[in-house]
């Protein structure tokens, strides 16, 4: 690294965990789900798309979000589950995401596929969460160090830096840009990475590959 880079502040890797909070809002059938979606807090909608990645469960879920999983497991409606699973939260703002969800649910209601009531204990429970952030003590001085560290990062670190919010990958991208214009391509590739369809392990591998390919090219 050049002496110019010595003035760049090291990047502090964080870790995070989520603490779940009951909203008390429940839906026992699809019509109720639609009704609750109209008013539920936007944080809860986002929770049901993203928090699955940090919650207990197996890494390879059949469906990508909690709404789809519920439709499949409790309403036994595969068609609806597939439609809900295809909704990519990264392509909507929060209100747009709510509207899209309601649209898919209403389509199913019109088709009259899922009008059954779930059993006790199988209702859809709207949850939200608080993110608790930890300092890993890892201070990264340059992109090469980050590349080496990536495979060893905790799932919470991957979640925090690449998923937690639309802006979260921006922190790494902004830091990379300080190393010169040539790093804008790397930052750009990271910002284009859509984490929704990946598990945290897959996401780490994707990010690692982007770093490897870029730094290999940069060093040639």
């Amino acid at each position: 690294m050049t002496s110019k880079n010595e003035n760049i502040q090291p990047f502090n890797i964080k870790d995070c965990a989520i603490l779940n909070i009951a909203t008390g809002v429940r839906a026992k059938n699809l019509k109720e789900l639609r009704d609750k979606l109209l008013t539920i807090h936007p944080e809860s909608i986002l929770y049901h798309f993203w928090a699955k990645k940090l919650r207990p469960g197996f890494e390879e879920p059949e469906y990508n979000n909690d709404f789809a999983t519920w439709a499949y497991s409790n309403l036994h409606d595969i068609k609806l589950a597939e439609r809900l699973s295809l909704i990519n939260p990264g392509t909507f703002d929060t209100q747009g995401l709510r509207v899209k969800l309601i649209e898919v649910v209403e389509l199913s209601l019109e088709e009259n596929n899922s009008n059954l009531n779930t059993k006790e204990g199988e209702q859809f429970q709207f949850i939200r969460s608080e993110v608790v952030v930890f300092d890993t003590q890892h201070m990264i001085s340059n992109p090469e160090e980050l590349k080496k560290l990536l495979p060893n990062l905790a799932p919470g670190s991957i979640y925090f830096h690449f998923i937690d919010s639309k802006n979260s990958s921006g922190d790494i991208s902004s830091w990379l840009l300080q190393f010169g214009d040539e790093y804008s391509k790397l930052a750009d590739q990271l910002s284009k990475l859509d984490p929704y369809f990946f598990t945290l392990t897959e996401l780490e591998r994707k990010v690692s590959q982007i770093f490897k390919d870029f730094l290999k090219g940069a060093n040639q």
Binding site: L19, N20, I21, A22, G24, P56, G121, Q123, Q125
Partner: peptide, 19 residues
């Protein structure tokens, strides 16, 4: 705090979920 969301009740404070 409760172990599962199913167990949470109507209460005037925040109900956390901690297994």
């Amino acid at each position: 705090f409760f172990s599962l969301a199913d167990f949470a009740q109507q209460l005037p404070h925040t109900q956390y979920l901690i297994p």
